[in-house]
Design a protein around this nucleic acid. Structure first.
Lengths: 143, 143
DNA sequence: GCAAACCGTAATAGAATTAGTTACATAAAT
DNA sequence: ATTTATGTAACTAATTCTATTACGGTTTGC
């Protein structure tokens, strides 16, 4: 199964907000930068707001903005806000419980995959939105 | 996106083979343990064989067996054999290249996600099939 | 040699997930 | 009031997995 692209789009959105330094940005403007539909952006913003990472101002002149300084927003928080399913998913079919392997493989395997996922999350926890914004600027200068 | 369940099924298959210690196991027997169709198992075995982890004996009395000792089969090899897509997938839509963020977010983000995926893989590399089999037996005793 | 058991692979169908679109009620600003 | 935006629901389209069916090819054992 493929990984969700929602996380990448969410980071794109947040980076765009960070560059506006608190000025409300309309979902339509963000959607133009991402290359998608405004409603898709609003749906993601809804998730981000629920996670406390952004807030929106309704009405004319409104839009989304960061709820905190970019430095205080870790990429793990963004990932979590997306409610992604586990990286390694157990089979949908149910294994034969009368079989030694069928009864016990998945729990045994999960110990390993849980540790692997934890390592993945730790790396995301170590990165924050400010770094991304900094890299965006630096890369653009270099190009 | 969600993660593929193929990896978990592959480990199930390999664990079942390991417990038979070299005796060929028919895809139908494995399928019964996993709770799926024999053709699904054969397809996965085909991938595992291509990766050099198993081999199959054709004809009557044939079946699949491990190509190496369980201790020499790391879970990372199994994962790689499945040809899973990247854990973090970039958006399908193309970002606006005239926008500072649109031009540069994804490469900047990828540096972080590549490091996170590498950490994930390292953990899988540190586990092998023998440990899984051992845990299967131990868990069953404990239950 | 022939039948039986089994693999390998292709083709197709069915399920489930995800992204995209449209629509509209609500809220703030001027 | 009117305009501009959000938030959310409902629906459609696209994609991706998994499951199933089918069949040609291989080995074993009589």
């Amino acid at each position: 199964m493929a990984a969700s692209t929602r996380f990448c789009v969410a980071v794109h959105i947040l980076a765009a907000l960070a560059l506006q330094r608190g000025k409300p940005v309309a979902s339509e403007a963000i959607a133009a930068s991402v290359g998608t539909n405004p409603a898709v952006v609003r749906r993601l913003l809804s998730d981000l707001a629920r996670a406390g990472l952004t807030r929106s101002q309704l009405g004319k002149g409104g839009g989304a903005m960061l709820a905190r300084a970019p430095k205080k927003i870790s990429l793990l928080e963004v990932y979590r806000a997306m409610d992604e399913p586990a990286i390694v998913a157990p089979p949908r079919s149910t294994a034969d419980q009368t079989c030694l392997v069928g009864r016990n493989v998945q729990p045994a395997l999960r110990r390993v995959t849980d540790a692997a996922e934890a390592a993945f999350f730790e790396k995301l926890a170590g990165a924050n939105l400010k770094q991304i914004v900094k890299d965006i600027k630096a890369d653009d200068m270099a190009a």
